[in-house]
Structures are given as C-alpha cells and as structure tokens.
Design a protein around this nucleic acid. Structure first.
Lengths: 204, 204, 204, 204
DNA sequence: AATGAATGAGCCTTCATTCAT
DNA sequence: TATGAATGAAGGCTCATTCAT
C-alpha cells in the first residue's frame, strides 16, 4: 500500500517534472536563457509559482535539466544509421546536410536551444557548467568520429588523425553557429567549409 | 577665443571620456558584459552617477564605445609587419603563436574583452549589433588573407581559394575561443588545429 | 473547491485593494496628486514596494482607482432626498449649504481630493483623462438639474433653460473651488454668488 | 566712468533678463509649468546653466517673473478703450468676444500661460503664491467693473451690486477656463453663459 | 504538495543645484 | 560675470525567492 502510494506519487512527480521541462524548453528556445524569468516558465507550464519551486529551485537548475533531457537526441538518427553500415559518402553528405539545415533555419526561428546554451555558457563558469558544454561538444565529435571510422573501414578515406579532424569539424560547426547567431552566415559559406572538410579527408 | 575654449573643453571632455572607457574596459574584461551595471563603472571610474550619464547613457553605449576604441589594436603589429615583406613561414608561425597565447591566457584571467563580446553579441540582435560582430570577424579574416597573399607572392604556398581558407581559419579561431571560454581548450588541441591548417595550405 | 478558493482569494485581493485605496486617498488628500510618490503610498498602506505593484502599476493608476471608488459618493444624500419630493426651497438651500461648507473647510485641510484632481487634470491630456473630469463636472450638473426640475414641478420656479443654468452653477462652483484652492474665497463671496443664482431662478 | 560702466552693465543685465524671460514665456506656454526643466529654459534662452542662475535661482522664481512681466498686458486695449467712453453695449460685446476667442483657441495651442498658471497655483501654497493668483483674478474683476460702471454711467444698465456681478463673471470665466483645459468647452456653452450674464445685467 | 501574495534587494534614470575655472 | 562639468538625492520598476495557508 505504502509502496503503491510512493509509486503513484513518484509517477505523478516525474510526469509533472516533464510537463515543466517541455514548457521550459519552448520558452528557452524562444527567448534564450537570460531573458527568461520564472514568470515565463510559470505561465508556459501552467503551474503555480510555489509549485515550480518544489521541482526546480532556480532558472539555472531548470535550464540544466532542460538541456540534459534534450542532449543526445539530436542526430540520434545518424548514430543509429551508422550501425547499419551505410555507404560512407552518402552518410557523410546526409550528416552535413543536416547541419546545414540546422544552421540556416533552427538557429533563427526560436526552435533551437543553441542561443540559450551560449547565453548560459558565457555567464556560468563552474566546473559543472563547463562540463555541460564539453559534453555537448563531445557529442558532435563522437558522431563525426564514428562516421570517419566508418569511412576508414570502407576504405573510402585514409585517416591518420581522427581526433584532430573530429575536433576540426566540431570547431567549424561551433564557429558557424556563432556566426549564424551573432553575425551572418551565408549558405555558400557553409558549402565552402564542408567542401574544404571533404578535401581534407580525401588528402589525408 | 571661443575656438580656443572649445578646443580646451573638447580636450577635457575627450580625456574624461577616455578615463571612463579605460575603467570600463577593465570592468568588462573582469565581469563580462551582462553582469556589469552602471554602478560598477561608476565605482571603477570614480565618477558620480550623474557625471557618467554626461558621457554615456547606458551600459550598451559604454560597451560599444569600449569595443570601438579597442578594436583594430590587436594584431596591429602583425599587420604592420606584413608591409615589411617578412618571410612567410616565420610570419605565419608568429601569427599562430600570438593566437595560441591569447587563447590560453587572456581568455582566462580577465584581461580580454572576448567573453564580454560574446555576452553582448548573443543578447543583442539589431543590424548594428550584428555588424559589430561581423566587423570583428572580418578583421581576423582580413589579416589571414594578407598573410596568405604574402605566402602566394613568395611562392611558399599555392592558394586557389583564399576566401574559404580565411573563413576556415576565422571559424576555427571562433570555435576555439568558445571552447576556451565555455568548456576546455588544451594547448595540444590548438597545435593540432594549426598543424591541420598548415597542411591544408601546403596541399592546396 | 476551485471556485471556493477563487472566491476567497478574490475577496482577499479586493480587500487588500481597498486597504491600499483608502491609504492612497488619505495621501492624495494631504499631498495633492503631483507630490505623491509610490513610496508615500507604500508607507501609508504598510505594504512592500513589490506588493503594491501587484495591485497598481503607477501613481496614475492608483489615482484613477481612488477617484473612481469615491466618485458619486458625494451628494449621494441629496440625490436620494430628491426622490422623496421634498420642498424645493428647503432642498436647494440645503444643497447650497453643503457646497458652502465643502468650499470653506474640506478644501483647506486635506480631507478632499479636489486639489489632487486639479493637479491630475492639468497634467493629463488623454481623452480618457478629459472624460474623467467631464464626468465629475456632469455629476454636479445632473444634480442641479434634478433639483431645478423639482422646483419646476413644484411650480416654485419657472425654468426655460435648465441646461444653461445647470452649466452656470457648475461653472461658478468650479470657479470658487479654484479660488479656494489657489487664492482666497470669503464666505460672503459664496453667499453673494448663491444669492445671484437664486435671483436668476426667480426671474427666469 | 565708473557710473558709465555701471550703467552699461545694468542695461546689459536688464536686457539679458528680458531675453531669458521671453524665452521662458514661450517654454511655459508650450509645456505648462511642471514639465519645464531648467534645461528647457537654458536651451530656449541660449544662456549657460550657471549663467541662468545668476539671474534666476529656480524655476519658480523664473515663472513668477514671467507672469509678473506679462500680467496686465492682456485686455490692455479694452482698458484703454474704456477711457474713450465708447458705447457700452459695443464695448461689452467686444470684451466678451475677446474672452470667447481666448477660451477657444489660445488655451489649446500653447500660446497662453493659462495651463502653466494653473499648474503653478495648485502646487504652490505660500501667501505670496496665492497673492499671484488673486492679482490675476482681480485684474479680470477690475476690468469687468470698469465696463459695468461705464454701463451705469451711460444708463444702459441699472447696477446695484457691481462687486458680486464682477465676481460672478470672473468665476464663470475661471470655470470655463478649467473646462477648456481639462475637459471640453463648446462654443455654444460660452454663448449661453454670456447670454445669461447679459440677461442678469438687464434685469438688475 | 500546491498556491500565489508578499518581500525587498538591486538597477536604472533624471534634474536642480553647486563650483572650479 | 559666465561657463558647463560634476554631484547625488529622489523616484521608478522588476524579479528571484519565501512563506502562511
């Protein structure tokens, strides 16, 4: 009976937590991190002020939970695909196209947490905060690495320095994200960079 | 007489302005952009609240002025050097070393406006604000381009796509700056990327 | 249950609102409108700064609410009396005496919102603001009109132009209010004007 | 020589004073009294901040000087005319027309100090301040009185109570001024009141 | 658990007045 | 006299966080 109750409560609690997080994600995607107030979350999640604090004790905590709940979802398809041993060039092109699309659209119209993530990162400096950003970057690196290893395996490329190349790709993506958010990024610039990247693979 | 007076006053005003901007720069370097309040500038520049408003009407205005006053100073030496037709490889290595040093030190110990610039960029979206960031990025691109053109001229490299390569370098620098500020950047990672960059030049 | 809660909360909220408005009225009566700051209301109503903003967002809003809550209260007695078909001359004299008393006392010792109302009116120019003052003036006109119509009905007076006469009375009251507040108004002046007014009725 | 100097300085000082007052009048007519800052006067009179304080020590002082310099100018023509023994009815109509015009136009388009005067009066309460408003009202009363006396002299009217009638006129003008500034005053309302006033004269 | 009213620290901005030159 | 830079008091507003119910 008691166990039963705990179980139910636990479910209720977990469910409510998710409701809040989903609302929070929408808010963060639209307003970034810094402009978001508790009031925004309260309105979006239709919970009371005090109620929200029973689940999350600050906007920071909420944001970290939002990010953690979402990360690793992106490019899940690609990672799943790799296991099916697809053609390397097809896969790489598909992966690059995915990034291009994201850079040109998501970034601008409030459907991505990218801006919020930057705003959070640049204003938070604890080891834990750095870890969050590192983890996110490593996800990109790991995916690239997997793709490259697939290429090596298929003898499509000759790859002596996977680590540096994966870093390189991640850095360029990071750089282009910044450009897209804070300045201007043209489609041709993306194409040029992806072409350089492929050339690099060919020559290595 | 009147002209004389205006001239003197103008000097006084300009001087005071610079004193404030110098204090502001220290504050922005230490606290970033978002955490800075008018109060901080007031304390740092030892001016009164009302006095500050005679020169600058908001933290934004102060920051723009700070950036404008500083931009183009960095890497001035390199740009001056180029005109002396130095050896390409020596110059490139010197330039890369400069970046490496900056990435590893300035960024961490509050002597650079980099973090403040990111905080500003990600929270300001007007065309003018984007222009500011673009201008900053273009400065890096222009310098790289000059260096590359020097290399072509000296037949040290064979360069078919200066624009994409300059973009590439700028993006990697941007990516590494983000890493250094928000996550972790190891010296070897910098070395690896710079090596990749030089390989790319060699092979093009 | 929810309804119950809402009901209770609503009552609490309405009650608090009234407490604030009552404090505000005292403040406005004492200091006029322009000299009143949010701080004054905060102190008078013993609420916190933020708390006050839950109910009212500016001194203007507070003043409008104060006026609205009070208007139509004054001379309610007279209006009620009219319905009982009292003797015209008795009623008129009673009404005039009421005005005389108000002009000589309330105005001076900070128990009336008159000064505050003038300060507000002369510094606010929106259609809505003008409407507020018009409404207040119309209240006086309507009351006079009712009294005059009672006189006509009782054949105590012969009244060809109720509208102009009501306007006339209202204007004289308005003029005397200004005099009382800004210059000097002697009891005899009031008596003289009321006598002129009654003569006018007799002769019309 | 010394006297000469003093004389010149005195002239310069008086001249500058007038320049300031003329500028101030324009500013007060346009912005009322309360919205006017020293900065406004400084800009309008093209004098320095410190310089202004050599002539006037506060906005209040400036305003009183502005009013004093202007008062008694209005309706000067009428007062001059009276001395020429014009026809009473013509003169009265001309006087009323003048008031009508003023009420319908000057009041609205920032060419009159009326609003400023009200704003000043309702926020200043010293005996001296009340005196200022009284003097202004007495000016109207005195003019009406002169006109009425002219009428009596010409046997155009039979006037037993000049004082109360003059008060009455002044109060109605005051009331209509308030209406015009703070609510709404229609031409017909003015006509109605002036007609009532003339009827009163006829019947007395 | 849940609610939302209440708190008050913290920031921004304006302006009359002073004062060194 | 004349200048205008400098001062700082005064007021406005927001929001994360707490707490009685």
């Amino acid at each position: 009976m008691n166990t039963m109750n705990n179980h139910n409560l636990s479910n209720t609690r977990a469910t409510k937590r998710l409701i809040i997080l989903n609302s929070a994600r929408l808010v963060f995607a639209q307003k970034g991190f810094l402009a978001v107030t508790m009031q925004d979350i309260i309105q979006a999640s239709k919970i009371s002020r005090g109620g929200l604090y029973l689940y999350f004790h600050s906007v920071d905590e909420l944001f970290i939970a939002t990010i953690s709940e979402r990360s690793n979802r992106q490019f899940d398809d690609i990672r799943a695909e790799i296991k099916q041993n697809p053609n390397f060039n097809v896969l790489l092109n598909s992966y690059l196209a995915e990034h291009k699309k994201r850079l040109l659209t998501n970034v601008k119209n409030g459907t991505s947490l990218l801006r919020a993530m930057y705003e959070y990162s640049f204003t938070h400096d604890s080891p834990k905060d750095r870890q969050l950003k590192k983890k996110q970057m490593n996800a990109t690196k790991a995916t690239v690495r997997s793709i490259l290893e697939l290429g090596v395996q298929q003898q499509a490329i000759n790859m002596p320095n996977v680590k540096a190349i994966a870093d390189n790709f991640m850095l360029i993506i990071e750089g282009m994200s910044v450009l897209a958010l804070a300045a201007e990024l043209k489609p041709e610039q993306i194409d040029d960079q992806f072409k350089l990247f492929k050339d690099q693979l060919a020559k290595n």
